[in-house]
Design a protein around this nucleic acid. Structure first.
Length: 221
DNA sequence: ATCCCGAGGG
DNA sequence: CCCTCTGGAT
């Protein structure tokens, strides 16, 4: 299920492998960052909420019209979920997301002056925002170090045998222990890009993979 | 554990 | 057809 069993490996050996992986990621994705279209932290927050269980391609097709109509928290707070739904229907999970986004915008206006709080606990109290979304927004919008773990990062961490944990927060901790803090946000985005375009869930392109020399699962998935 | 959910890929 | 997509709330 998770590819091959991970080899027994000393911490020092794993650290050296992580170092090589980081080097390869920096060469393959020198400017890795979010591909979600946004102009402001608020728009990034909305786009990230929308990206749950959806491709960011579909999110990027929806957000230009959405942000034209509701550019900021003040505008979105005035809307009803029914008004938001048509803009995001094709993304999927649209009823929940429309309801969450309007409630989220109201709370931003009421409690944070319409701004996005730079605090993880505060972000996680917003409707539709969990640990992953909060970590991504803090890193991408404000440069707060952290490795958010989504479906891609979890899959790659397992295949690369950098973590055998199941809980995303735990996988994040395992990864953060293996990479320099100043690279955490980069590592997140680079792993997402690599998971999206090379180390895909179904048919990973191991022959074209720059990480293959350091991957215990290469050719076995 | 289950639900939300449309769209594209294989 | 089934699987997957930068998850979160119940």
């Amino acid at each position: 299920m998770g590819g091959v069993a991970c080899p027994k490996e000393g911490l020092e050996e794993k650290r050296k492998r992580a170092e090589a992986i980081l080097k390869a990621l920096k060469e393959a994705y020198p400017k890795a960052r979010t591909e979600l279209k946004h102009e402001t932290p608020f728009q990034l927050l909305v786009a990230t909420v929308l990206s749950a269980q959806a491709t960011d391609k579909s999110v990027n097709e929806a957000t230009p019209a959405l942000f034209a109509r509701f550019p900021d928290a003040f505008a979105l707070a005035q809307a009803t979920p029914e008004e938001v739904e048509p803009f995001i229907r094709r993304i999927g999970l649209y009823k929940t997301k429309a309801k969450n986004l309007v409630a989220l915008a109201k709370r931003l206006v009421e409690e944070y002056g319409g701004e996005v709080p730079k605090d993880k606990e505060a972000l996680m109290r917003l409707p539709g925002v969990g640990w992953k979304t909060a970590t991504v927004v803090l890193g991408a919008a404000f440069g707060v170090p952290g490795i958010a773990v989504d479906t891609h990062v979890a899959r790659l961490a397992h295949r690369l045998c950098l973590s055998e944990a199941k809980a995303p927060e735990r996988i994040g901790k395992d990864l953060e222990a293996l990479f320099p803090k100043e690279d955490w946000v980069f590592v997140h985005h680079a792993l997402v890009l690599h998971g999206r375009y090379v180390c895909t869930a179904r048919r990973p392109r191991c022959k074209a993979c720059a990480l293959a020399p350091y991957c215990p699962s290469r050719g076995a998935v």
